[in-house]
Deep mutational scan, measured.
Amino acid sequence: AFSSEQLARLKREFNENRYLTERRRQQLSSELGLNEAQIKIWFQNKRA
């Protein structure tokens, strides 16, 4: 489960760009304390 802070950040990123570069995913992973797979799957689900 994502914290409300993490979700807000993911939604902001998604609004700016529906697709993440690998580098951006790595940055978000480290900033949010999530693993890259969690972020990747969140974006895939959000696009679906």
Rank of each mutant, 00 (worst) to 15 (best):
A1T: 13
A1E: 12
A1K: 12
F2E: 02
F2Q: 03
F2C: 05
F2H: 04
F2I: 11
S4V: 12
S4M: 12
S4E: 14
E5M: 06
E5K: 08
E5T: 08
Q6K: 04
Q6L: 05
L7F: 03
A8K: 09
A8R: 14
L10K: 00
L10C: 03
L10S: 00
L10F: 01
L10V: 01
K11I: 15
K11T: 15
K11N: 15
K11P: 01
K11V: 15
R12C: 12
R12Y: 08
R12W: 10
E13V: 05
E13A: 12
F14K: 02
F14R: 01
N15V: 07
N15M: 12
N15S: 13
N15Q: 13
E16P: 01
N17M: 04
N17G: 05
N17I: 04
N17D: 08
N17W: 05
R18V: 06
R18Q: 13
R18W: 10
R18Y: 06
R18T: 06
Y19Q: 07
Y19F: 13
L20H: 03
T21N: 09
T21L: 02
T21Y: 03
E22M: 09
E22Y: 07
E22L: 09
E22P: 15
R23N: 13
R23P: 09
R24L: 09
R24H: 06
R25K: 11
R25G: 12
R25L: 15
R25W: 11
Q26Y: 08
Q27A: 10
Q27D: 09
Q27F: 08
Q27H: 07
L28F: 02
L28G: 00
S29H: 03
S29K: 03
S29V: 08
S29C: 07
S29D: 01
S29W: 03
S30G: 08
S30W: 12
S30M: 13
S30V: 14
E31Q: 06
E31K: 04
E31Y: 03
E31S: 04
E31C: 04
L32V: 04
L32S: 02
L32T: 08
L32G: 00
L32W: 03
G33F: 04
G33H: 06
L34F: 02
L34S: 02
L34Q: 00
L34A: 04
L34R: 01
L34I: 12
L34Y: 01
L34G: 01
N35G: 10
N35M: 09
N35K: 09
E36P: 11
E36S: 08
E36M: 06
A37T: 13
Q38R: 06
Q38N: 05
Q38E: 11
Q38T: 10
Q38H: 07
Q38S: 08
Q38C: 12
I39Y: 00
I39Q: 01
I39A: 01
I39V: 08
K40P: 01
K40H: 15
K40C: 14
K40T: 14
K40A: 15
K40D: 15
K40R: 12
K40L: 15
I41Q: 15
W42M: 02
W42S: 02
F43I: 01
F43T: 00
F43L: 03
F43Y: 05
F43C: 05
Q44D: 15
Q44G: 07
Q44S: 09
Q44W: 08
N45A: 11
N45I: 11
K46H: 14
K46W: 14
R47Y: 09
R47P: 03
A48M: 11
A48P: 04
